[in-house]
Write a protein that binds this DNA or RNA. Structure first.
Length: 350
RNA sequence: GGAACCAUCGCCAAGUUGGUAAGGCCGCAGCCUGCAAAGCUGCUAUUCGCCGGUUCGAGUCCGGCUGGUUCCUCCA
């Protein structure tokens, strides 16, 4: 509260803010030549076209409250030099940032993020009051993310279409959700649906299948070109799509080379290092691959699967393919996919 | 009513100094396999919502239209 009050007082002293008759304090947007630059709002005096009726004591239609005077009754109020009341919406952020971040004299902080709905008026106002109070810019970069929608609709409790991660996590590995949610550029709207989530899972699955081919083994050094390509993509305003494309390409190349030479230790070690780098940078691919494919399968089911696989192995050895295929169908029916490899049969929960 | 952002292959999605369309899913063909699955190879947008304009050249710039999302009041 002290920091808030001090910042408001400073704005009043600099004539960037004014107190009206009821004790409200408003920021004078006309005193800030850069007002509107973040949200690309043009200065227009045709504010009477707005469907909103404004406080008549405002000097300019876009002036906003730094401090709201106490309305009495149950209203929570604080004592301040200008009036008894409470802070406006935006001032808390500006005050907090100034108090806790040193800045470099040009910017208080490097990056300020938030949802696209906060772009205006919140961030515009926050930036304006900080700019006038401190004499320098609040943030070097403003990043606004799009919204998560459910089947084309904004996710909200009132629409009844919200979901909780804890429910999704019962069915999907957390990394699948992370991969999916991060697979689209942060600024775009994100239409959440299970079909696309499954597509994301298929992509992550490929990474983990490759990892199965790499283990056991130790990582050596990450491939320089691969690392550079990923960093370049992410440095370009977090271009995750390009980064994921590089990862897909790396996976395909590794698989191709392993097909040609399954015992290429140097390749395995480097690829393992590549995957470790992906995990460090993007937060997926770091798990033990067999457990990744077994989420949601308890010990009981696991034993049943192993038993069926043993029977199938016996049938295959006896060339009884009718039986072995029947067992495979049984497993498929309960969501277990199997694949025969030179090292034996492995299974995955789909 | 005003404003901002967005609109690319069946689906998801890159493409910011304009130079001739990444990647993934699906699908098709092939290799591999007892058959599959997995993996690999090849193929799959003369075209970027629509209409104009600028330019030697536009998905990329400008204008208009259509469609979608968001903001323009309080609370944060």
């Amino acid at each position: 509260m002290d920091a808030i009050e001090q910042m408001i007082e400073r704005l009043i002293d600099k004539d960037c803010a004014y107190v009206v008759s009821n004790g409200d304090v408003y920021f004078d947007t006309s005193k800030d030549p850069h007002y509107g630059e973040i949200s690309h709002k043009v200065h227009d005096d045709e504010e009477n076209l707005s469907r909103v009726v404004h406080n008549s004591e405002k000097r300019n239609p876009k002036d906003f409250a730094l401090w709201k005077a106490c309305k009495g009754g149950e209203d929570i109020c604080f004592d301040a030099p200008f009036s008894k009341g409470r802070p406006g919406w935006h001032i808390e952020c500006s005050a907090m940032i100034e108090k806790h971040f040193e800045g470099d004299g040009t910017y208080s902080i490097d990056i300020h993020g938030g949802g696209a709905d906060l772009l205006f008026p919140h961030h515009e106002n926050e930036a304006a009051q900080s700019r006038c109070a401190t004499g320098h810019e609040l943030a070097k970069y403003w990043m606004h993310n799009g919204f998560v929608q459910i089947d084309g609709e904004k996710m909200s409790k009132s629409l009844g279409n919200s979901f909780f991660l804890k429910d999704a996590l019962k069915v999907y590995d957390g990394e699948v959700l992370r991969y999916y949610l991060n697979s689209v550029h942060y600024r775009n709207d994100f239409n959440f649906n299970e079909e696309d989530l499954l597509t994301a899972k298929k992509r992550l699955d490929k990474l983990y299948r490759l990892k199965k081919r790499l283990l056991p083994g130790k990582a050596s050094a990450v491939n320089k070109d691969f690392k550079a390509a990923l960093l370049e993509a992410m440095a370009d305003d977090l271009n995750i799509s390009v980064a994921l494309a590089h990862i897909d390409e790396m996976i395909a190349n590794a698989n191709e080379q392993l097909d040609a030479n399954p015992k290429d230790k140097a390749l395995k070690k480097e690829t393992l290092a590549n995957l470790e780098f992906v995990d460090t940078l993007l937060g997926f691919g770091g798990k033990e691959p067999y457990s990744y494919f077994q989420i949601g399968v308890d010990e009981d089911l696991k034993a049943q699967i192993e038993e069926k696989l043993q029977k199938r192995a016996n049938a295959k050895a006896a060339k009884d393919f009718a039986t072995s295929d029947a067992i495979r169908d049984e497993l498929t029916a309960i969501g277990i996919a199997i694949m025969d490899t030179p090292e034996g049969t492995v299974w995955e929960k789909i």
